[in-house]
Design a protein around this nucleic acid. Structure first.
Length: 562
RNA sequence: GCGCCCGUAGCUCAGUGGAUUAGAGCAUCUGUCUUCGGAACAGAGGGUCGGCGGUUCGAAUCCGUCCGGGCGUACCA
């Protein structure tokens, strides 16, 4: 808890109660520095009720607060239309550096699902984005005291697999596992690319003559699972290629340095669970037969109808997702489940959760669906394989690495590259589309990951030149020092906000401001060989630690030097 | 058609539990500098916050409406 803020809010509320007999809950805001450390507009809110003008109310409150807040505050004043600005004493300000972010999820078990790549297909820039966002959101919840299980869900069955299998078999000439193994590719990336090319072939063929054949392959893939077939040539090809995809996923997550997943749920494993549930819900009348398919009539709830089982008797994504929710709960007995996906399935998810609500309302309410936008190309163009403007997930990293190399020899090349890419994605509010320009987006200066990393490395560099001791709690601060301390004390509030909203961009915006304040301090205030060296070293240390903690929440490394 | 989301400087975006002068970065222009690490710092220009109407002492923020864009809307995921 940011204790100081709570104390002040409490005391301001008490003052309102005593002076005007009105119960109010105070939310202190952070005004611009020139106005003070905290502000409230309570005088404006009370104006009507009290029947006085806001300035007048403000003046009365100020007199009272100067008394009751004497030990915390050095200045209280009324400004503008009636804002009350509070300035903390240096001692109180330094004291509030000790505050820690709230443990609002203490003891909770949380499942975080994100990334969700499909086997037998390539990972594109969107997967990189969702992986980075999901990792950070999971970090935020962990930081707040939750036990977070990171899980991943993806299609190892479904029409896209039928398409890729078609492309594979076409390319090999027949169902021949030896021919597949003879395809001489040694990196996970190359094998994934090979599969992706086969998918594209299958996808094109599906538009034309091969549709029937691909539909048949799709059924055969489901049959591999239901019959536990590991021996037929078709099955051998399938299992081998699925493993190629899984190896590639693992390689990818290691490359982008996100925390590993606890579990990968392949759709083949959630399908049977989902189908069993569909059967049960059909008997209960929650789902119904319609035109040969099994559907949920969402119209009864202001939603739309969605198919859970096709005419062919196959599960749709809806059934698989139903199975996933059941499986996640069986595995983890979660208090909260966070599902992070693109915006395009918002309405879809409402329908699925409405179905869940029919048999397990507590699961539906514990599930939170967070969505993000698309990664679009320069000019706002949507990526499409048809137009050939798709961007592979690792291509983004590679082009950023090139840009980093341009700067010069790097000791921490990877950390900086990933810092640039992750920050570029995370600094925007989760929900909107991201415009990705390979040349411009991954910035290394200004509001960027490397700016933060550089500022951190600089601070650490100073700390190597002199040992930082404890900060003297009774110290009085010069202007530049005070600005830095003030900014650092905002950290806990920002992290709490980011946890409440599950939005990492709050942390980004704050860390950038923090680094700016430090860089200004650095320009104007000598640390080493200055009479105030001891105090300043302690401040630099607190700054560097705070920045490092914040970057950690974003999944970004804070190198000691670069 | 219906539902959901979005429209803030040339570009990319913060700000939307109403409030002190609408903020950043990039780009443009001008400075700082014999660097405790210049991936830096200081400054300038650039905005009818899509339009109109409403609520309010006060609206980028809330409500209505229109315009523009995106997504979804039964057997893809």
């Amino acid at each position: 808890m940011s204790a100081m803020k709570d104390v002040l809010e409490q005391k301001v509320a008490e003052a309102c109660q005593e002076l005007f007999g009105i119960e109010v809950s105070i939310e202190l805001t952070r005004p611009e520095e020139q106005f003070g450390d905290f502000a409230t507009n309570v005088a404006l809110q009370l104006s009507k009720q009290v029947g006085k003008n806001p300035r007048e109310i403000g003046e009365e409150l100020v007199v009272k607060l100067r008394e009751t807040l004497a030990s915390e505050v050095s200045d209280v004043s009324v400004a503008g239309p009636g804002f009350i600005n509070l300035k903390l004493s240096d001692v109180a300000l330094i004291g509030s550096l000790k505050a820690q972010p709230a443990k609002s999820l203490d003891g909770k078990v949380v499942v975080a699902e994100y990334s969700n790549p499909n086997a037998f297909k390539a990972m594109h820039a969107g997967h990189l984005y969702t992986s980075v966002v999901g990792d950070s959101i999971a970090n935020l919840m962990e930081q707040a005291g939750a036990t977070v299980h990171r899980v991943n869900f993806g299609g190892d069955v479904g029409l896209h697999v039928g398409k890729t299998m078609w492309g594979i078999i076409k390319s090999l000439g027949n169902e021949d596992i030896d021919a597949l193994l003879a395809v001489d590719l040694d990196s996970p990336e190359e094998r994934a690319q090979w599969l992706s090319d086969r998918y594209v072939e299958g996808n094109n063929a599906y538009e034309g003559e091969a549709k029937e054949e691909i539909v048949e392959y799709n059924k055969q893939v489901y049959a591999i699972h239901s019959e536990d077939d590991h021996d037929s040539p078709f099955a051998q090809i399938y299992w081998t290629c699925r493993q190629w995809s899984y190896d590639y996923f693992q390689y990818f997550y290691e490359t982008i340095n996100v925390k590993p997943f606890d579990k990968y749920y392949p759709e083949s494993s959630t399908s049977p669970i989902g189908m069993a549930k569909v059967k049960e819900l059909l008997e209960q009348g929650v789902l119904e037969n319609s035109d040969g398919a099994v559907v949920f009539k969402g119209e009864n709830y202001g939603l739309h109808t969605r198919v859970f089982q096709t005419r062919e008797g196959l599960p749709t994504y809806e059934a698989k997702d139903l199975g996933l929710i059941v499986a996640k709960n069986d595995d983890y007995h979660f208090d909260k489940s966070v599902v992070i996906t693109g915006n395009d399935i918002i309405e879809y998810m409402k329908v699925v959760l409405k179905v869940v609500e029919q048999f397990a309302p507590e699961l539906a309410t514990a599930t939170k669906h967070l969505t993000h936008g698309l990664v679009k190309m320069e000019g706002g163009e949507k990526m499409s394989s048809r137009k050939g403007n798709t961007l592979g997930a690792l291509d983004v990293i590679n082009s950023a690495a090139e840009a980093v190399k341009q700067i010069g020899d790097q000791t921490e090349q990877e950390d900086i590259t990933l810092g640039a890419v992750k920050y570029a994605f995370l600094k925007q509010r989760t929900g909107g589309d991201i415009i990705y320009d390979p040349k411009e987006s991954v910035s290394l200066e200004g509001n960027s990951g490397p700016y933060l990393q550089y500022s951190h490395a600089r601070a650490r560099s100073i700390l190597r030149k002199g040992e930082a001791g404890e900060l003297n709690e009774d110290a009085s601060l010069e202007a530049g020092e005070r600005s830095l301390v003030r900014k650092i004390t905002e950290y806990t509030e920002v992290v709490d906000q980011a946890v409440d909203d599950l939005m990492p961009h709050h942390v980004c915006a704050y860390l950038y401001e923090l680094a700016q304040v430090f860089n200004r301090f650095y320009e104007g205030n000598r640390v080493i060989d200055d009479p105030r060296q001891s105090l300043r070293l302690a401040l630099v240390k607190t700054y560097a630690d705070t920045l490092q903690n914040g970057l950690k929440l974003l999944g970004i490394a804070a190198p000691e030097q670069m």
